[in-house]
């Protein structure tokens, strides 16, 4: 790695100014980040389809939630802790991005590790939450309420799982020293995805638990 550092400084010298947003000397947004933004666009549309289904189903069924499941979704239960954890992980993820933009590899590894662990904790808590709901008789098959709840949160959980895998990859690569202030497109892209997953959860939490 020591051999690589001077080369990087040299190439930074003739780039046309440092572009902090993309972490890339190329003009404009870099290919991987644009690709990720477009991928997130498609994911937004995927969740739009599910949200549309949720509201359409909810409008067709009164009362909502049905009497059997009244108060089963308690916003102040364990779910609020999971929510805070996921929001916190978005912050630590951003700290990791800022660290690597400064070239602080240690800070990057530290912050991304925390994000990675928080993501796993969220998933464990969601599984725990599911077991409670199952024990109270709410499943995918228990009418529109259960179907929509588990479909929406389940697909979100799958996306968190995907995000955790991506975090694992950039954590591994970060520990191997593959990222620098100038070369960290993957970090920027994964952090965008992680923020997206977080925002979807905030929407889900608001709609499923509060609305």
């Amino acid at each position: 790695m020591t051999a690589e550092a001077p080369a990087l400084t040299a190439s930074a010298g003739h780039g046309e100014g440092h572009a902090p947003a993309s972490g890339h000397a190329q003009r404009g947004i870099s290919n991987p980040i644009l690709g990720m933004l477009l991928f997130i666009t498609s994911e937004v549309m995927f969740f739009s389809g599910l949200f549309a289904a949720y509201f359409s189903t909810r409008a067709a069924n009164a009362p909502w939630p049905p009497d059997v499941f009244k108060d089963i979704l308690d916003p102040l239960g364990p779910i609020i802790i999971a929510t805070i954890i996921l929001i916190a992980s978005s912050f630590t993820c951003q700290f990791a991005v800022w660290s690597i933009r400064r070239g602080d590899r240690k800070g990057f590894v530290r912050n991304i590790s925390i994000t990675f662990v928080l993501g796993i904790i969220f998933l464990v808590m969601q599984v725990y939450d599911y077991t409670i709901l199952f024990s109270e008789g709410m499943t995918l098959g228990s009418g529109p309420f259960g179907t929509t709840y588990f479909t929406l949160t389940g697909f979100h959980g799958a996306h968190v799982f995907g995000g955790v895998l991506m975090l694992g990859v950039i954590l591994y690569r970060g520990m191997a020293g593959q990222f620098s202030a100038k070369h960290h497109d993957a970090v920027e892209a994964v952090s965008l995805y992680w923020h997206f997953v977080d925002i979807v959860w905030i929407l889900l939490f608001s709609i499923l638990y509060l609305l």
């Binding site: 498609s42 389809g49 067709a60 929509t148």
Partner: peptide, 29 residues
Amino acid sequence: TPVITSALVMLFIDRNYGGSFFLPDKGGT
């Protein structure tokens, strides 16, 4: 395309996991 993916996964859930997105008799539309 992601929107039809969402329709397809909902249909799959209806068919295989007892979901009720599109079944009027179970509260779907």
